[in-house]
Design a protein around this nucleic acid. Sequence first.
DNA 1: AGCACGCCGACT
DNA 2: GTCGGCGTGCTC
Length: 684
Amino acid sequence: MYADVVFPLKLPPLTYRIPTGALSEYNGNLNGRIVKAPLRGRSTYGLVTSIMDKPEIGGGKNIKEIQGIHRHFASESTISFLKWLSDYYLSPMGVALKPYFFEEAISVSVHQKSGGEVKAEGTPAIQKPDVERNIEERRTLAPDIDLPSITQSLTAVCQGIKDKDYRSFLLQVPSIPLEHLFLNEVFNEAGSGIHGAIILVPEIGQIERLLSPLQGIFGERLCILHSRLTKREKIEAIQRVISGRSDVILGTRSAVLAPLKNISFIAVLSEHSPSYKGEEGLRYHGRDIAVMRGFIEGAGVLLSSICPSIESVYNSKIGKYTFLDARSWVVSHGTYQPKKKIKIINMRKSALKRRVISEEVFKEAKRLHLKKETLLFLVGRKGYSLIRCEDCNHILKCSGCHLPLVFYKSRDMLRCHYCGHEERVPESCIECKGFNTKPSGAGTERMKEELEGLLKTGPIIVEKGKGLLTEPRDRDSNLLSDFTPFVIGTSYVTRKLRDKMFDSAAILNIDALLSRPDFRAYERTFQEVMQVSQSVRTDGSTFLQTWHPENIVLRFIKSYDFDGFYKYELSQRDSLGYPPLSRIISFNILTNRETSKIMLDTQNIADGVRAHNNKNSGHHRHMGIDLLGPIEIPSPAKSYRHCIQILMKSRAKKAVHLAAKILLSRLGKLKGVRINTDVDPLKI
DNA sequence: AGCACGCCGACT
DNA sequence: GTCGGCGTGCTC
């Protein structure tokens, strides 16, 4: 008998001989067991995914023998999920095994005597929920909360958990605290029915805010899992999960693949967050994986957000998810009023002299400064500005990366934010040799300068720029006391300083967000504004400065018309053939070699696949597969100098996978290149 | 991931 | 002349 073994390496399953007698010792089934097998002369731990009578004909000639059989790791459903992952993300199975915490599981096996099954200790008794606290929370968050209609659906979630029905929900909430409150409700209602749960948040910082309420409910059953744990901590966490001591996991993206034996519930908070998408290794999307894992393992899945992704709303419209609308959880009086004012500022009418700040925002700054209140300024970048030639309109770029260089006035240097390269500011324009180079646009540094200048001229005195934060990267966010009047930062300040509330906020150049070369630019902008408004107090305003106030997205945003936006955006995506109505797969061909020959070869391969596609689906014109490229793009990987990209795009979502496999197998024959495949890429 | 094989620069 | 650099390729 033979077994296919997967190693946590960039490898497909390899075939090994099963030692005689071993099978009967394990009831004739080794599937899902960790085994030790020789690989390139060294014994390595791997996972058995299938057993068979005869080895595959095409496989290796001198098949080696399994050296040791260890604990059971993966159920049949886990193995089929692994296969699905490898298939969907077009990666070798070993790459799919890695994020499964396989190596941690091996360490656990090795340290605590291999061979035998670890007996699950049975789930510890559920702790009494902290009822007092929850009631208190409800009172302060939403005094007249009207639960009935929501509760019905919520109970359905709980029933789903109890019945092991496959059910996914998309919940739209008006605020982050209510998102958390809802989750609390689910656990209070369904707590005793939950055996195995995963709660995902997009960033590590958000774990903290859910920790104590969840500990109140689950006590020792709760386990934290994220990528910043040390090796040791990770192994410890996985040990708790494998042994059954912990069956409720709170963590980031990677936690979705925690090796839980049973799962009855998965929650994905802020499901729209781009942090859920991986950019290396197995490039899986945490939210999509959650839905798929829920389906395969029969768990209820709850996706929630203040501003859901177009994908998820689409999926709810076509019946894949049940939509729960909690936006009406708005309290009319009381302390909680989520719909804060959003003001669109027409810069054509009201930009002040240096064109980065408007009269309205300046007035608001003066007003708030007098009242000792706080204002958040959001700018597009760090540093002072870009440098643009007034004569030829050329913007200074990094010679290596072809990305704009950022001017740091304080150090009088230009810096490439991508590769870190620094250079002196040139005397004249590289393009036209003119001497008319000027700062263009505004970063945090320039805003600080601008603001100090403006406020000093008025009746307000700023204490030597004190309290103005220009370097939000500072690890120590404690620098920001509650009395810090003005914070200037890039958008990720809102993520890092979630608990700090501002009296107003201003996005100084929303046009930069809206005009990003990304088909999701409008969606991202909507989400960004919703995010920012979360940090603004109830009676405060969010100012959006724009040179294009006629932009339809701004009108949707201003009136919080998410439904209108969704309709508009979906029709745009439809007419251009973008997701969610199509699927995109990107292929990056990375190399350090001369690019011209590879470019030619790649072109030929692409043409071949194009011909193949046309032959197979020529009569369905609208269902065809678009193959774009190859084109040379700036290399996204530091260790490779060149990158050639091919994009595949089609409304026929299954056919595109098939075509991608053909393309990949041909690209694989190229020498001296590395190929990165990204299914459903976020950045293209 | 490792580890071997392989083809170009400064040392005994 | 060799030692060794790491870039490239293979692992049942």
